[in-house]
């Protein structure tokens, strides 16, 4: 047992509550709240013990996405939100409890991936009707319905597709990267999924037919860049690899860093255990 978390219907740990205990044999405990607490949670608290630090996240989405309130516990500490605030109050639908090891290396993936992705994509889109709209989002995707045993790193980019006679069509492309440890403890990974979304209109189908094969083909370039990045870890051997939502939480946290309010799409943190 390493992380114990309680979620309460009312502020200051009152009203109906549910508790969860994450044993030290698992990395994650994931929860999708039922009718008694879904969109009802106002306060939460958690402890870490038995040789582990821990993090707890409560998300507004039922798929571990959306805004979140997190707690960062050193072993032997209790952390809490006595009130998760107006942004999240009565809006939390799912939660993650995560065991943290003492000897880890954590890296925020947005810094590693976004810049290279952006410049490669701009090269590909030059001279086409599609243009990048805004910055890429890099975030952790936990056990999605289309690949329910996997934790993935998603790169998501909004596009604008120009037509001469009609307002631009909005589109979004997404790549999902599967990172894993090989049996000899090396970090490996590849692009596992490619997705394309186009807003509704007469030409949605035509744009999708044109764009999606290019998105799928672009996975090969992304894979090459990914292998370059992962080669930085080639001389290290790790015992475990896992993902955290958002930016890296300070671990072990000083008590002033007991938690944060954020959004799951802010970042993805890769954690490697020595």
């Amino acid at each position: 047992m390493a992380v114990y978390a309680e979620f309460f219907k009312h502020a200051n740990f009152s009203g109906y509550s549910e508790s969860f205990t994450l044993g030290n044999g698992s990395r994650y405990w994931w929860i999708k709240f039922g009718s008694k607490l879904r969109n009802e949670i106002t306060s939460m608290r958690a402890n870490a013990y038995s040789g582990f630090d821990g993090n707890v996240y409560g998300f507004t989405g039922n798929d571990f996405l959306g805004d979140y309130a997190s707690l960062n516990m050193s072993e032997g500490w209790t952390c809490w939100w006595s009130n998760v605030g107006s942004k999240l109050n009565d809006d939390i639908e799912s939660a993650l409890l995560i065991n943290r090891n003492k000897s880890e290396f954590a890296v925020e993936l947005k810094d590693q991936i976004a810049g290279v992705f952006k410049s490669k994509l701009d090269e590909k889109l030059a001279g086409t009707q599609a243009h990048r709209r805004g910055e890429p989002r890099v975030f952790s995707l936990f056990w999605p319905s289309f690949d329910p045993t996997k934790k993935l790193v998603r790169i998501e980019q909004d596009l604008r597709v120009e037509l001469d006679w009609w307002p631009d069509y909005d589109a979004t492309i997404r790549y999902d990267i599967y990172l894993y440890l090989s049996s000899d403890g090396k970090v490996k990974g590849y692009v596992k999924w490619a997705h394309t979304w186009v807003e509704g209109g007469i030409f949605s189908g035509d744009i999708l037919d044109e764009l999606h094969p290019k998105v799928v083909a672009g996975a090969a370039d992304l894979n090459s860049e990914l292998q370059n990045k992962l080669s930085l870890f080639s001389s290290f051997t790790f015992r475990s690899l896992y993902l955290l939502p958002g930016p890296q939480p300070p671990m072990p946290p000083p008590s002033s860093d007991f938690g944060r309010i954020g959004n799951a799409k802010d970042n993805s943190t890769l954690v490697l255990v020595f």
Binding site: S26, K150, Y180
Partner: peptide, 12 residues
């Protein structure tokens, strides 16, 4: 080794 590292609770 990489994927079976979680437990789950889907209430209701």
């Amino acid at each position: 080794m990489n994927d079976l590292d979680y437990r789950m609770a889907v209430r209701d």
